[in-house]
């Protein structure tokens, strides 16, 4: 399908139309932007930098039921993800969309994870290109992304000032575009070229970068390096860097019972927590934050690429922006390169 134009004053109507699906869009709560299920287009905030919590939570909810049961009854009732129906994530950043394609590797290797994959199948991703980098700590271009990246997106919106240029990237995107076709018009000649120009400028505007070549091989060799103690000294051991990472995917499984009914559910977990690896015997293979930090970096930049051929980091900068003590993954990687 040819490129379209969605005038900004029509955006609300388009969102209204899309809200017949399960529609997630960035919305403001106080000063925090989070992806929320939107019923009223007025809640959406499309003029935003980036969401604090990545939209991974739509396809990989922080807590989700795997199956339900009644005590004393052997029947296990599987959660039916299909029931959630068609889902649209509107206005996500290209890095966050790319992150989902990275996580897809994990959830589909060997055993297929039915919950995640079904949700991915049901979800259409409508991206919002980064005309200006959302933060000084964006470094998507260093890890295979682009401010105008289209990877894994079904539609890409480019903010051209008065209007959005809508690029249709997949059939799924095409179908979605049709449902809001009446609010859009054909893109005038030159719009694509203007978008190209903006893309180039956005790429130029990225202020941080890292040369990742060689890091994958180098990390295992730095196992005993003193650098890990140095970079983890300030670490508080909280879950910010992992929970807010669009590619982090570790989870815990717990059973919950309320009266005679129960469920087995899974919830995000973080390798930065002490309990994460703690054995029942009291032994902990990663006894301090030093080992946990080493694991976090190594997993993203060495183990994951070793297994799936892609770095498990999209350069969104959240872990740098939001770390309470300014632990900076680019600084750590810089030290790895230098070491």
């Amino acid at each position: 399908m040819a490129d379209k134009i969605l005038k900004k004053d029509k955006a609300a109507e388009a969102l209204k139309e899309l809200s017949k699906f399960r529609l997630f869009a960035p919305a403001k709560s106080d000063d925090v932007v989070l992806f929320r299920q939107i019923e009223d287009p007025a809640e959406a905030c499309l003029d935003y930098a980036n969401s604090t919590v990545p939209p991974k939570k739509v396809v990989f909810p922080q807590t989700e039921t795997l199956f339900r049961f009644k005590l004393g009854n052997p029947e296990l009732r599987e959660k039916n993800v299909e029931e959630e129906g068609t889902t649209v994530i509107f206005g996500l950043r290209p890095c966050d969309a790319r992150a989902m394609s990275i996580v897809d590797n994990l959830f589909s290797w060997d055993y297929e994870d039915p919950y995640y994959l079904k949700r991915r199948e049901l979800t259409t991703l409508v991206g919002m290109a980064c005309v200006t980098p959302p933060s000084v700590n964006c470094f998507c271009a260093s890890v295979g992304g682009e401010p105008f990246g289209t990877e894994n997106l079904d539609l890409l919106l480019v903010d051209m000032g008065e209007e959005y240029l809508v690029k249709v990237l997949t059939d799924k995107g095409g179908k979605l575009a049709e449902t809001i076709g009446s609010f859009m018009e054909n893109a005038p000649e030159g719009a694509a070229a203007k978008a190209e120009e903006l893309a180039g400028a956005a790429r130029e505007a990225l202020s941080r970068s890292i040369d990742t070549s060689g890091i994958e091989a180098k990390l295992p060799a730095l196992w005993d390096s003193p650098l890990w103690k140095e970079v983890s000294a300030a670490c508080l051991g909280c879950g910010i860097c992992t929970y807010l990472c669009p590619t982090c995917h570790c989870f815990d499984i717990q059973d919950e019972v309320e009266d005679a009914e129960g469920r087995r559910c899974r919830m995000w977990d973080s390798c930065m927590f002490r309990e994460y690896t703690l054995h029942a015997s009291g032994h902990n293979p990663r006894p301090t934050r030093k080992e946990r930090t080493r694991n976090r970096i190594s997993h993203k930049y060495s183990y994951f690429p070793g297994k799936f051929g892609v770095i498990a980091c999209v350069g969104c900068g959240r872990c740098v922006n939001l770390c309470p003590v300014n632990i900076d993954i680019l600084e750590i990687l810089g030290k790895v390169v230098e070491a």
Binding site: P220, I253, H279
Partner: peptide, 24 residues
């Protein structure tokens, strides 16, 4: 090897020992 495990199918990440998924 033995590590804490949750999913058993190479997803949850808990049993990782370096690059290895102990469960897989």
């Amino acid at each position: 090897l033995e590590n804490r495990m949750k999913c058993g199918i190479g997803k949850c990440g808990r049993c990782n020992a370096g690059p290895l998924y102990v469960c897989k």
